[in-house]
Design a protein around this nucleic acid. Structure first.
Lengths: 324, 324
DNA sequence: ATGAAAGCGCTAACAG
DNA sequence: CTGTTAGCGCTTTCAT
């Protein structure tokens, strides 16, 4: 197992200095085309590959070509879509992505925040685990740019990319109310998350706007994972005065709720109306199918509320570009 | 923006040599407990975090705590599950994972193979894009251990973790034949993939075993993505002598096929029977629902064939541990 | 039990 | 146009 060729190996063979080689690689400085040719040829011959680690060690700040992406739950299709998107544009810009999955676990989030810094990534993209995350601010303080996506920190200190969670939830719940529902169960996300808080607020505000009283027992809190959707839907549907509609605050919990609804043999929307935040694979087919299965031509048909997150969407606020 | 504290910062404050600090960190060599205490205290105070980049640059081979994972398509639930699993055990062993997504694109796979080496990861896990991938062997030659998972290289040169694709497909198709189907359409994966080839072989062998003739026009080749499932299912179902059953060779293409079936208003299994390789979220609910929707108590109900990939599964062959 | 010093491979002044 | 040189932060002999 021979050592990987390095700059000196190339330099030796070309009888030039290593900096000349470095310069030809990065197109910096003036090197005669003659030597450039020679160098490139040798590099190809001996299969030289620049060592990214050494490069990153040397260049303190800026483009070392590595981006950190820290994700709450890679099994959530929303986030794997996000990961794919980030990776796509990173690749197009010749960046690599150091991706990790903190699984909604604060400790793991911390661990990866450390790793990213220790790897001197050029910047970190993450949906923080809660709105008051001092660790994230600390990272920025230490000099690593951070952009929050989907979830954000309280205050406008950091760049962020997010959707209008309040409005989405508001419109969904208002729609249910307009369809005649007055007992709408909600399976909320954690309220120390910006998305959780905003969506729940949308739910409440829609009630207020339409003069529908809130029923505290219809408000349940999950953790954005499938299992809590299953469990909380079950609790809600077991209530003496069960809700006639459900508003579920993310895609994974919606899947869980659907499983419960299916297990109970309920028809959508005849016996229970449903709106879930987020789209997920097959959601449209699944729900339409369910409606067919229920065989009733009601107007109150279930909908999947699509949360879009595209770069060309103008409604996404991007604020306070925090480059050092 | 002050510089991140380094070993020398710690050493200075403790009035010891940097190697002493290094030794206390790694519990190597004999350091008096007194100084150890002092050093640890200072490290905590100034918030010292070891620089993983420098560490990796110094230690040629072995445990620098970084694992490379190169995945064909992160949006495929099968692979995001895989990513999650890898990440889980990596985390438990204090490893970070450099994850990338080559999107079934040979060029991207190459790019990431290079990146992994250039980042001097301790080892690479990947489902190679095809069975004869010289680049992968080259990487091993260069000294980076590689383990293939799900897909593998031809020959038994590398460690691999995979399921019995042939048997899975064989049993699925045999089941359909036993239910009376003789025109079974197959949406195969690429045959330069081990999984694609093996599953297709299972399909053919089941026919041979049961004495059912093969119909070449019923064999179509997709790329393991949703869209090709949609398209090829459409082609198959448009045939003058359309198949009465469909065997789809992975989860994503099964989703695509389901969309086509849905669009055509076909009932499962009455009008079309379906077996797909892989499980995916809600697959069970979805298909059961479909059967209900079709309202016929046939025995030939569709199934989702579950491809399991768990560490405790004894049927997974692990061969030729290739640590240099 | 600790210090000194040599690099890992590369970039970035600073000289010519 | 090209060479010299000083590190980046860390591990690891080799001394003491």
């Amino acid at each position: 197992m021979k050592k990987t060729p390095s700059l000196v190996d190339v330099a030796r063979r070309c009888k030039v200095n290593i900096s000349t080689v470095s310069r030809t690689i990065h197109q910096t400085g003036k090197i005669s085309l003659d030597t450039q040719e020679r160098i490139r040829k040798v590099m190809r011959e001996i299969g030289y590959k620049p060592n990214r680690v050494a490069r990153r060690l040397r260049t303190r700040v800026g483009s070392s070509g590595l981006l950190g992406l820290i994700i709450p739950n890679i099994q959530n299709p929303f986030f794997s879509d996000l990961a794919r998107g980030v990776e796509d544009v990173a690749y197009k810009n010749n960046f690599a992505v150091l991706l990790s999955n903190y699984d909604e676990d604060p400790q793991k989030e911390l661990f990866y925040l450390d790793v990213m810094q220790a790897e001197s990534v050029d910047g970190i993209i993450l949906p923080p685990i809660h709105e008051d995350d001092p660790a994230v601010l600390q990272v920025v303080q230490n000099g690593t740019p951070v952009v929050c996506v989907d979830r954000s920190l309280r205050g406008d200190t950091l760049d962020k990319v997010e959707v209008d969670n309040h409005r989405g939830a508001f419109e969904a719940v208002e729609h249910l109310i307009q369809r005649g529902h007055s007992r709408i169960g909600v399976i909320s996300g954690p309220t120390n998350l910006s998305t959780g808080r905003e969506r729940l607020k949308g739910y409440k505000d829609a009630h207020a706007r339409r003069g529908v009283p809130l029923h505290p027992e219809l408000i349940r809190f999950g953790d954005y994972k499938e299992e809590s959707g299953r469990k909380l839907a079950d609790e809600l549907l077991s209530l003496p005065a069960a809700p006639t509609a459900l508003f579920v605050c993310n895609g994974l919990m919606t899947i869980g709720a659907l499983e419960t609804i299916y297990a109970r043999g309920l028809r959508i929307p005849r016996q229970i109306a449903l709106i879930g935040f987020d789209e997920f694979p097959l959601s449209a087919v699944l729900v339409k199918l369910w409606v067919l299965y229920s065989r009733r031509g009601e107007l109150t048909r279930p909908q999947i509320f699509v949360r879009q997150l595209e770069s060309n969407q103008t409604s996404i606020p991007i604020q306070n570009l925090n480059r050092d």
